[in-house]
């Protein structure tokens, strides 16, 4: 080892700091800018195009005509009569929004009911087993969502394994019709987003101080009381984070309602895609996308408000 006197070290540090002050900022900008520019132009800027398009008129073959119009928003509530141009109230699009919010909400609750005990179970395991469990819970998230949804479809369809077992064992004479119903979409959504619930919950529960649990038991609390009054309040940031992380993608889901809802049970995700595809109504699709974005942003605001510093890790 070199023998460095304290003053040399201090000199070096001071010099390093001077250099860093003059060049660090420029170097940081040079390194940071390419990523920010790419995401800015191709990630952020397109959102403003969508916002603009929602106030224009649809072009005949897709795209837009540059004519101001609020028709896209009016269309959510009213149907325009093609003959006399009068507006009449129609709830068909409101229903799709309602179904999306409802399904995303029920999925969130379902994922919480399944995910909380799972996360708690993992957190109470010895550390060497925790990583394996976490890996097993996360692995499906990194595999293809389309293929996983397809796997669900294979099982729940009329000719699928579940009905094969039900009819084969004589429990039912006709197959149970699950595919292309709301419950099918619900199952698919929970299946898709369960890992999003477990991970933040685990992050909270892992830090749980079991001395508090012990203290509660010493004060004659029952297991249920300990769960309700001690564990759940302490896991709150994780619960909020998990719920948001399931609710947001659930709301905008496309693959699940397309495959398992069979196009009959539309959600906002398919509705938006359809407007940019077969329906060729880009302004209406843009307006729907903007409404979806607004709901998501509101959810994120709730998340940031509730999680404080704990939220950054998952954002």
């Amino acid at each position: 080892m070199t023998d460095l006197s304290a003053s040399t070290v201090a000199d070096n540090l001071a010099r390093a700091r001077r250099i860093s002050e003059s060049t660090a900022r420029r170097r940081r900008l040079q390194l940071l800018m390419p990523a920010l520019i790419v995401i800015g132009i191709f990630g952020l800027f397109p959102l403003t195009i969508t916002a603009t398009y929602s106030f224009l008129s649809p072009g005949t073959y897709g795209g837009v005509r540059w004519e101001f119009s609020t028709d896209a928003y009016v269309q959510f509530l009213f149907q325009r009569d093609i003959f006399d141009d009068t507006l009449s109230f129609s709830d068909s699009y409101l229903r799709i929004i309602g179904r999306s919010v409802g399904l995303a909400f029920v999925t969130t609750i379902g994922a919480l009911i399944l995910g909380f005990p799972t996360a708690y179970f993992i957190a109470s395991k010895p550390p060497n087993q925790r990583n394996l469990w976490l890996f097993l819970i996360t692995l499906p998230f990194w595999t293809n969502l389309l293929i996983r949804t397809y796997a669900i479809l294979l099982i729940i369809r009329d000719e699928g394994l579940i009905n094969f077992a039900l009819v084969g064992s004589g429990l039912r004479s006709t197959p149970l019709n699950i595919l292309y119903t709301d419950p099918a979409v619900f199952i698919g959504l929970i299946y898709s987003y369960l890992p999003f619930m477990v991970l933040p919950l685990y992050a909270s529960l892992e830090k749980l101080d079991f001395k508090l649990v012990e203290a509660a038991y010493d004060l004659y609390a029952t297991r249920l009381q300990v769960l309700r009054r001690v564990i759940i309040p302490l896991a709150r940031p994780g619960i909020v984070a998990g719920c948001i992380l399931v609710f947001i993608p659930g709301l905008g889901a496309y693959i699940t309602p397309t495959l398992l809802g069979g196009g009959k049970k539309l959600m906002m995700g398919n509705m938006i895609a359809e407007q940019f595809g077969a329906s060729r109504n880009w302004p209406f699709g843009s307006a729907a996308a903007l409404i979806l974005m607004t709901v998501v942003m509101l959810a994120l605001v709730v998340y940031v408000r509730n999680s404080g510093q704990g939220g950054r890790r998952h954002g």
Binding site: G40, F42, G43, T50, G252, A289, L292, V296
Partner: peptide, 27 residues
């Protein structure tokens, strides 16, 4: 702000990113 921009693709629903990108590329 830098963190927010880098994570932006994760925060916006994928379908919104998809149609917005489609609109930009069409232009």
């Amino acid at each position: 702000l830098s963190y927010a921009i880098i994570n932006q693709p994760l925060m916006v629903p994928e379908i919104v990113t998809a149609v917005s990108t489609l609109a930009l590329f069409a232009i």
